[in-house]
Amino acid sequence: MSKPIIILEDVSKSYGAVPVLRGCSTAVSRGEVVVVCGPSGSGKSTLLQCINGLEPYQSGSILVEGVEVGAKKTDLPRLRTRIGMVFQHFELYPHMTALENVVLAQVHALRRSRKEAEARGRRLLDRVGLASKADTRPGKLSGGQQQRIAIARALALDPQAMLLDEPTSALDPEMITEVLDVLIELADEGMTMMVVTHEMGFARRVADRVIFMDQGEIIEDSPTKTFFSAPVSQRAKLFLSKILSH
């Protein structure tokens, strides 16, 4: 593990009087896979969205490759091309084909030529097993297929890290595996990832560390093995017992 790509220091955020993040600090090193879990409403998604500047935060600091995300002069679009993001509800553009989805930001954010972008787009679609769906619109695809295309869209920018916000929780059970398989492959290749998920099997298999959040706080931040075998906090124990009981 080398120096951290993402560093959070005492990050707090609130909507009006309602705190959503409270003094969150952690760091993600290059090549590390970090799983973030916790009950719903615990601030996991918000934390992820703060990291690439989709949500503002009121205090603390978030550094991505040494750049302060919240600073006024930060070139957010540039910073965001360095980080791939995958959403719970895929958020593919419904008015574009799969390939156009993967090409768009390459052309308009990275200024690649259309030809180059399309070639790379096709390679990535092939990699997630959907080369044949290049000219299909998202509305005609299953949730699992859509999420794999969304992953391809994020990878197309050659990101230094990936943020994945509950990538499988909107999927029908039979489609979860096809998406997790893609993510496991990515992890094996050494992609730096922060994944919000409830898939504890996946966490056990690929995560280097697990962060457990509750009520906007990072309660526990331990190596995967420790987290599952001997969680420190009562709340994490309770959460694990609930989620692993079935």
Partner: peptide
Amino acid sequence: PDGQNKAALATGLTRLQALLLVVYPQ
């Protein structure tokens, strides 16, 4: 949906690009 705008921004598009390429057409 707001997620569309966020997804566009997350891939490094500027606010204007996100509006023109993703939000307005839909």
